[in-house]
Design a protein around this nucleic acid. Structure first.
Length: 910
DNA sequence: GCGCAGACGTA
DNA sequence: CGTACGTCTGCGCG
């Protein structure tokens, strides 16, 4: 089916110009580009969504048209064209030329007339038509085969106006809309309406008399004031109608056949986009155009062999020479609390061939060949989720060396804020292939097997379960192999290759060993603690019920609490949430301060104890058979580059309150699972104020750097500068204000947010920030520049070159844009800290090994490492940690590490 | 059984 | 109207 896409160039450019803040869109030469950006963005979206076969863009040539000749006031009263808009239309035409999209303009006519003419031609030739225009005059063109996309709210959302939609929203069918508009008026065209006649009256008349001609003929019958008004303004209405009628037979230099989409000029697109400094948009454009060029998604084909007993060695000999990269996919039994499941089968795929080996069917020769190949660092392997996959092999005594890529990690480095790195998702995203097994028709599995090109002889021997499993494993391995090639190209920058090769990949093994080690738990103490919290919770619940005189309310239900607080007790309303009023701890504490109602005290206490109980209970459930808790570290979740910890999350164990800290007492020193040797203590080492140090380094601010070099208390130092007093004269209040602000700045804190947090006026907060920036101007400049640079490039970067793309920096939606700006402020700081501790972990593990130490790393909590210390190694490990953590990055300020030791995590804290 | 919202723990 | 996470509970959906 052929489909013609028509755009109204001027109306879209204007809309974009007013939707996008012009100050965020200019080239280094000072040319404004917001209209070009918005227009191009809309164009890309519509090309992607509508997949037209023919395209044209119509422009107005000048304001002099047959309409201004009839009515000099037509479109008068419009503000003169802003200076920043001038020139952008020509730039839009350059973009169109690069894309080989025809643009048309004709003296004496408006863009809408050209669109009407082309629409008429296209319909006559049997094409579907899609019009993208912000001008209501285009409504009259809509019919069953002509769709209007009408931009609403900025440049990212459009209404799809069909005849039904127009009737629903504007009360008349599209062919009568111009009649209605003639009576109601159109302010943007400076066409006045009949006083007292709105859309409802006009629609009613149209329903009654059919069309405007009918209404005019029956004008005498129209009742009331509105009827009289129409009679008084008949000439004006008829003139409006002549003016808003689009011309469907403009003499055009092109016909529909000339508009067929042609190949775009890749080099010219690069040249034009370079000039415009559009980076993000270029990527979006290429992605859209290239995926349009790709054929419809298909499954993955693979030629492979099901290996029978004794056949692995020769297959590897033929296809897995040193230097030949093989993808490896491990099938395994389900994982257990203590760790990974057991590997049961392997899919292998090189550039050409694939194979499957069932470990159950493998003989001694196969096992030896497999073990040698897996353990050989010279035989390069690529995996998807190497940590989980290699853990399953480790479980059956097969260590893996020579992992040169992990497709999940590579995809994460390319785009760290995707929600999934499933193999199937990546295959679709990067290979345009469905990772779905082609099951063929219903006549059994033979079709699928033939599609895979299995060797017929082996097929006879394989049982059906193995055959299906083998087929899946080979298809997956083929996907992993092809993905690793594609993602390698995506990660061609040297810093990103370094991140993958020298940081993320080696970290996989470190994390796997930390997970396998787990941390010992004092289970009796934990269970006692859980009981204690449960009792305190029950008491708090009873107290709350007593205060209320009602023992049916569920204190854990915010919904029920809202009824109690704001209806039963009639307390003042709190901050709004989506569904009502918040009952969070801050708000409850505020209410308590106002009212001192005993229910509130008991409720807050209940929340507290319930939380502690649930935390303790969760930990009890997580203790594995070996008496230890084994968390799982996620390496591809946090968009900034941090790790995250799940099942259980050991990165959010309480520490701030006295009672919460008691939970840290149950994490204790333990014994080695295999040797049974006891360890001596736990050691905790953390970076002090690492994010502020990174801020000092990245901003190069002299004052902040000096603060860290002198080794003085940071917040006291900053406080003395901000408040203009001697360091020893900085009061605790001054110190805490400055501390809140210093940290807040790295998160994009506003004066409003600061005032809220410190319970001071917005004015005071503003004053405080100004004083701060006065003294630490480097910080102000840095924060400003980092966002501007991200806006230009489309991404932020950490000290190791880890990127985070933030396309929303150019959004027309203020909320989204400002959110992206805060992310852009924070990502380099939080992400650089993540880089540094990852490097520190690699250095620490290597140093422990090189020095022959038995102590081991157990936990990472963003700026802290927890280690289990073997007898007699305490001093050496402490020295080692200070050196390896402190030397993990070369910043313009020192990286201070503070270390503590004890029998529990609590005692090791310092 | 599943997904969402609200609440809250950490850095 | 301050970033980054994970988990639990209640609740409405089907």
């Amino acid at each position: 089916m052929s489909r013609l896409l028509l755009l109204d160039g001027h109306s879209l450019a204007y809309r974009a110009f007013y939707a996008l803040p012009v100050e965020n869109f200019s080239t280094t030469t000072g040319q404004s580009t917001n209209a070009v950006y918005g227009f191009t963005s809309m164009l890309i979206n519509v090309l992607r969504d509508e997949a037209p076969t023919h395209v044209a863009v119509a422009f107005d040539r000048s304001r002099q048209t047959f309409r201004t000749q009839e009515y000099a006031e037509y479109k008068a009263g419009r503000a003169s064209t802003p200076g920043e808009f001038v020139g952008q239309v020509d730039l839009i035409k350059q973009v169109l030329d690069a894309l080989r999209i025809t643009h048309v303009e004709v003296d004496g006519y408006e863009a809408d007339d050209i669109i009407a003419t082309l629409t008429a031609q296209a319909r006559a030739e049997g094409l579907e038509v899609v019009i993208l225009s912000g001008d209501r005059d285009a409504f009259q063109l809509v019919d069953e085969r002509t769709l209007l996309l009408y931009p609403v709210r900025g440049v990212s959302e459009t209404w799809r106006l069909t005849p039904e939609k127009i009737e629903e929203k504007y009360l008349v069918r599209p062919e009568r809309y111009s009649d209605l508009a003639a009576m109601v008026g159109e302010s943007s065209d400076n066409l006045p309406g009949v006083p007292g006649v709105g859309p409802k009256t006009a629609a009613k008349w149209l329903a009654q008399f059919g069309d405007l001609t009918g209404i005019v003929g029956a004008a005498d019958q129209l009742k009331g004031k509105a009827g009289q008004a129409l009679r008084d303004h008949l000439d004006q209405v008829l003139r409006n109608r002549r003016l808003n009628q689009l011309v469907g037979d403009v003499p055009l230099p092109v016909g529909v056949a000339d508009l067929q989409a042609r190949g775009w000029d890749r080099e010219e697109v690069h040249r034009v986009f370079d000039g415009l400094e559009f980076r993000v948009l270029r990527e979006r454009l290429f992605a859209t155009l290239e995926s349009a060029e790709t054929e419809a998604e298909e499954g993955i084909e693979v030629a492979g062999s099901l290996l029978g007993p004794g056949e692995l060695a020769s297959w590897l000999g033929e296809h897995a020479g040193p230097g030949e990269r093989l993808a490896l996919v491990v099938q395994a039994s389900p994982r257990t609390a203590a760790g990974a499941g057991e590997a049961t089968g392997l899919g292998l795929a090189g550039a050409e061939h694939a194979a499957y080996l069932s470990l159950d069917r493998a003989d001694v020769d196969d096992e030896r060949a497999l073990r040698d190949w897996l353990a050989d660092p010279a035989c390069p392997k690529v995996l998807h989720d190497a940590k989980g996959q290699t853990a399953s092999l480790e479980t059956v005594g097969l260590p893996v060396e020579g992992v040169v890529s992990d497709t999940a990690l590579a995809a994460y480095l390319v785009r760290p804020d995707q929600r999934s790195y499933d193999l199937a998702d990546l295959a679709l995203r990067y290979l345009h292939r469905e990772l779905r097994l082609d099951e063929g028709t219903d006549d059994g599995g033979d079709d699928g097997q033939l599609a895979l090109g299995w060797d017929d002889g082996e097929q006879e021997q394989a049982d059906e379960v193995d055959a299906a499993a083998g087929r899946a494993a080979m298809v997956h391995a083929r996907a992993v192999h092809d993905l690793s090639v594609t993602l390698d190209e995506e990660l061609s920058d040297e810093p990103e290759q370094h991140l993958l090769r020298d940081v993320e990949l080696p970290l996989v093994g470190v994390l796997r060993r930390m997970e396998q080690a787990g941390i010992a738990v004092d289970l009796p103490m934990l269970e006692a603690l859980e009981g204690e919290f449960a009792a305190a919770m029950a008491q708090a619940q009873q107290d709350a019920w007593d205060a209320l005189g009602d023992d049916t309310v569920n204190l854990g239900s915010p919904k029920q609490l809202q009824v109690v607080l704001f209806e039963t007790l009639g307390l003042p309303k709190t901050r709004r949430t989506k569904t009502g009023y918040t009952t969070d701890a801050d708000a409850l504490a505020g209410l308590y301060a106002q009212t001192e109602h005993p229910f509130l005290e008991a409720l807050l206490r209940h929340r507290d104890k319930a939380r502690l109980r649930v935390t303790a209970e969760g930990l009890v459930k997580s203790v594995a058979d070996d008496g230890r808790i084994h968390t799982t570290y996620q390496q591809t979740i946090a968009a900034t580059g941090r790790l995250s910890s799940t099942e259980p999350n050991l990165q959010n164990i309480p520490i701030r309150t006295e009672e919460g800290r008691r939970i840290r007492e149950i994490f204790v020193v333990g014994r080695d699972a295999s040797t049974g040797t006891g360890y001596e203590s736990l050691m905790s080492a953390d970076y002090s104020q690492i994010e502020m140090r990174i801020m000092a380094h990245l901003s190069g601010d002299e004052g902040l750097i000096e603060a860290f070099r002198t080794g003085e208390d940071l917040h006291r130092f900053v406080g003395s500068r901000v408040f203009g007093v001697q360091p020893e004269e900085v009061t605790l209040e001054m110190r805490s204000k400055v501390k809140a602000m210093s940290y807040g700045l790295a998160y994009g804190l506003s004066a409003f947010g600061l005032s809220k947090q410190l319970t001071i006026s917005t004015g005071e907060a503003k004053q405080l920030m100004e004083e701060y920036f006065e003294r630490f101007g480097g910080v102000r400049d840095y924060l400003r520049d980092v966002v501007a640079e991200a806006r230009r490039s489309g991404f932020t970067e950490t000290i190791l070159g880890r990127r985070r793309h933030l396309p929303d920096l150019l959004s027309d939606n203020r909320q989204r844009r400002e959110m992206a700006e805060r992310m852009a402020l924070n990502a380099p700081i939080q992400g650089s800290a993540a880089d540094i501790i990852k490097v520190a972990m690699l250095r620490t593990e290597r140093a422990l090994r090189e020095q022959g130490l038995a102590s081991r790393m157990l936990l990472q909590v963003h700026d802290e490492l927890v280690l289990e210390i073997a007898p007699g190694e305490r001093e050496q490990v402490e020295t080692l940690l200070r050196a390896e953590m402190g030397g993990a990055a070369d910043l313009s300020v020192p990286l201070d590490v503070s270390v503590g030791v004890g029998r529990s995590w609590h005692e090791a804290a310092h």
